[in-house]
């Protein structure tokens, strides 16, 4: 047991370094997913037929092809057609593109959860499209947005571990480095698992608190 704590103490700085990379990856992927997802959702909703079709194809592809295949295709494959990315940015791009497809659906779902009667009511008060969006639609949609977003965050955080496969030195690979030296895999993996757990569970709790804070009686999410 003493050995365990000593080992943890010794390896924690390195693991936290890896954790930092994992968090950085997560944030960048989330950002790319949000921005691209919003654009896709916009196209899917307001685009003309060919644009909607393209957005639909994008959605199908990035929901159907496994994350790891995307990672390998971007990192090992793209150089064949002239794009060379570092492992880190290859991971951001591949996982961000995937996340965008899901984010687009989350955006659409949360906006569609606001009934059209709300928009009609806003117009009837003389609000323009812009005002109706800011004051009526958005405040309701954001509440429907939080739970699936929390879910997507946890998925992305866990998926960053796949970047291990293309050589990104994130939490899992930092762990492997320590194991290579110490040859105590179980304790190290348990610490790594605990870190992931805190990051998913802890943040999920925070988002749940936010959700409850924003909750309005009568609006079930």
């Amino acid at each position: 047991m003493l050995d365990f704590f000593e080992l943890v103490q010794k390896s924690l700085p390195t693991l936290l370094e890896g954790t930092f990379v994992t968090i950085k990856l997560t944030i960048l992927i989330l950002a790319l997913g949000l921005v691209l997802g919003l654009i896709i959702a916009f196209f899917q909703t307001y685009g003309n037929k060919p644009v909607r079709l393209l957005a639909g194809i994008y959605d199908r592809i990035f929901r159907s092809v496994p994350e790891l295949v995307l990672l390998l295709l971007v990192f090992y494959g793209l150089p064949n057609i002239g794009f060379r990315l570092s492992p880190f940015y290859a991971a951001v791009l591949a996982l961000g593109l995937r996340s965008a497809a899901y984010m687009a659906q989350i955006f659409r779902g949360s906006f569609m959860s606001v009934g059209s009667d709300q928009l009609t009511a806003a117009y009837s008060l003389g609000m323009g499209e812009y005002k109706a969006f800011i004051y009526v639609i958005f405040p309701q949609a954001i509440r429907a947005f939080i739970p699936p977003f929390a879910n997507e965050y946890a998925i992305i955080l866990k998926d960053t571990s796949l970047a291990y496969a293309i050589g990104v030195v994130e939490l899992l690979r930092h762990g492997q480095y320590i194991i290579a030296v110490e040859y105590k895999p179980l304790p190290i993996f348990l610490v790594i698992a605990a870190i992931y757990f805190v990051l998913t569970f802890g943040v999920a709790r925070l988002l749940k608190m936010l959700e409850n804070k924003l909750k309005i009686p009568g609006i079930g999410v």
């Binding site: 899992l172 895999p185 993996f189």
Partner: peptide
């Protein structure tokens, strides 16, 4: 615990 940790970490363990 399973849902809160990456599948890859579980396979590695």
């Amino acid at each position: 615990i399973i849902r809160g940790t990456p599948l890859l970490a579980q396979l590695f363990i």
